[in-house]
């Protein structure tokens, strides 16, 4: 797995790109929701996909977690799968802000809507800084209200080599919302991403 290792400079660079992307995403969200979003430093971690299921099983012990997946494709072989994990209580917070009423949308639709907003606002910001652009596959619900989400995560994660774990916390003025986003990236895209980071680092 040494080939997929990131240097401290590369990690710092990626962290800053994530930071800027989060800022852009939050700005859009804040305007859309007509509320203020308090940004926190997003904790990013590059992890072996094998460790992911255990990590999240521990974090969400005994809680039902929804798992939504969204594929993204960019130029130059940059592609992957973004996974959002949240507790339903957290989704309800956003649903209220987005003015979902119970009768005209199912929970499934609400989950996929919110996931595509959070994922694509963030990924568009990241792509822009990499001089790239992403197209997206429609979001899929891997599991909802499921205590065995870790198994489903394991089945999804094993197809990929590297996971970029982004801990997203949006503190809204009146609500606190927290979810996890995991970017699963295939090996060749990791190499490509490192080249892009090196180019950015070389220019400064």
């Amino acid at each position: 797995m040494t080939a997929l290792h990131f240097t401290e400079e590369q990690r710092d660079c990626l962290q800053e790109l994530v930071n800027v992307a989060m800022g852009q995403a939050s700005d859009k969200l804040a305007r859309y929701l007509a509320t203020m979003v308090h940004l926190q430093v997003p904790a990013i971690k590059l992890v072996d996909t094998q460790q992911l299921p255990q990590h999240f099983a521990q974090r969400y012990q005994q809680q039902s977690v929804s798992l939504i997946s969204m594929g993204f494709f960019g130029d130059q072989g940059l592609r992957g799968e973004a996974i959002m994990l949240y507790q339903l209580a957290n989704v309800d917070v956003l649903a209220r802000l987005l003015e979902y009423s119970d009768d005209d949308s199912s929970e499934a639709e609400m989950l996929t809507d919110i996931s595509s907003v959070l994922t694509t606002t963030f990924l568009n910001g990241l792509a822009e800084q990499l001089d790239n652009s992403f197209s997206y596959a429609a979001p899929r619900i891997l599991s909802s209200r499921d205590q065995h989400f870790a198994d489903k995560l394991a089945a999804t994660a094993q197809q990929w080599q590297l996971a970029l774990q982004v801990d997203i916390r949006y503190q809204l003025t009146d609500y606190s919302f927290h979810c996890d986003m995991i970017l699963l990236i295939p090996g060749e895209a990791v190499l490509r991403l490192r080249q892009m980071l090196d180019q950015i680092l070389a220019s400064f």
Binding site: K28, A108, T112, N124
Partner: peptide, 13 residues
């Protein structure tokens, strides 16, 4: 407003 795509699936609607 967000300049991001939205989706609708036959399974939900």
């Amino acid at each position: 407003a967000l300049q991001v795509p939205a989706f609708s699936s036959w399974e939900q609607r």
